[in-house]
Lab assay of single mutants.
Amino acid sequence: EVPFKVVAQFPYKSDYEDDLNFEKDQEIIVTSVEDAEWYFGEYQDSNGDVIEGIFPKSFVAVQG
């Protein structure tokens, strides 16, 4: 069931425009499960802007 919160276990950096880049310990709200390997989610950056994109499930852990 979406949405749910995950926390980055590792930093994720990608050159693909659709990917969500983040640092370790970033909290991310997952709004869609793309497939067995990928989530789609969002978070607010330090400027208060909402950043969204896809990212690999293996880089995050589900909270709770």
Rank of each mutant, 00 (worst) to 15 (best):
E1S: 11
E1C: 15
E1K: 12
E1Q: 12
V2P: 13
V2N: 04
P3S: 05
P3V: 05
P3T: 04
P3D: 04
F4D: 02
K5V: 12
K5Y: 10
K5P: 05
V6A: 05
V6P: 03
V6M: 01
V6F: 01
V7R: 09
V7E: 02
V7S: 04
A8M: 01
A8K: 00
A8I: 03
Q9W: 08
Q9N: 08
Q9S: 09
F10R: 13
F10P: 02
F10G: 06
P11F: 05
P11I: 05
Y12F: 10
Y12G: 01
Y12M: 03
K13I: 11
K13M: 10
K13R: 12
S14Y: 02
S14W: 03
S14G: 08
S14M: 02
S14K: 03
S14Q: 03
D15K: 11
D15F: 09
D15R: 09
D15I: 10
D15A: 11
Y16C: 15
Y16M: 12
Y16Q: 11
Y16S: 14
E17M: 11
E17G: 10
E17R: 11
E17V: 13
E17F: 09
D18Q: 14
D18C: 15
D18A: 14
D18R: 15
D19K: 12
L20Q: 01
L20A: 02
N21I: 06
N21K: 08
N21R: 07
N21W: 13
N21V: 07
N21E: 09
F22I: 01
F22K: 01
E23H: 06
E23A: 09
E23L: 07
K24I: 09
K24Q: 09
K24R: 09
D25V: 03
D25I: 02
Q26S: 01
Q26E: 04
E27I: 14
E27Q: 08
E27T: 10
I28S: 00
I28K: 00
I28L: 05
I29T: 14
I29Q: 05
V30I: 04
S32F: 09
S32V: 07
S32R: 15
S32A: 14
V33R: 06
V33W: 06
V33C: 08
E34K: 15
E34F: 15
E34I: 15
E34Y: 15
E34D: 08
D35F: 08
D35Y: 08
D35Q: 07
D35M: 07
D35E: 06
D35R: 08
D35C: 13
A36Q: 10
A36D: 14
A36L: 09
E37P: 06
W38S: 07
W38D: 00
W38M: 09
Y39S: 00
Y39C: 04
Y39A: 00
F40T: 06
F40V: 06
G41E: 01
G41R: 01
E42Q: 14
E42W: 15
E42D: 03
Y43I: 06
Y43F: 08
Y43H: 01
Q44H: 10
Q44K: 13
Q44T: 14
Q44S: 10
Q44A: 11
Q44P: 06
Q44W: 07
D45C: 10
D45N: 11
S46K: 13
S46Y: 09
S46F: 08
S46R: 10
N47L: 07
N47I: 05
N47P: 02
N47R: 09
G48L: 04
G48I: 01
G48H: 04
D49W: 09
D49G: 08
D49H: 13
D49C: 14
D49M: 13
D49Y: 11
V50R: 13
V50E: 02
I51P: 00
I51F: 14
I51S: 07
E52M: 14
E52I: 10
G53M: 02
G53D: 01
G53R: 01
G53P: 01
I54Q: 12
I54S: 13
F55K: 01
P56H: 06
P56V: 02
P56R: 04
P56T: 04
P56C: 06
K57E: 05
K57G: 06
K57P: 07
K57F: 08
S58G: 08
S58F: 08
S58R: 12
S58I: 10
F59E: 05
F59S: 12
F59I: 13
V60T: 05
V60K: 00
V60W: 03
V60I: 04
A61C: 14
A61G: 09
A61N: 10
V62G: 08
V62F: 11
Q63A: 13
Q63R: 09
Q63N: 09
Q63I: 15
G64K: 11
G64Y: 09
G64D: 12
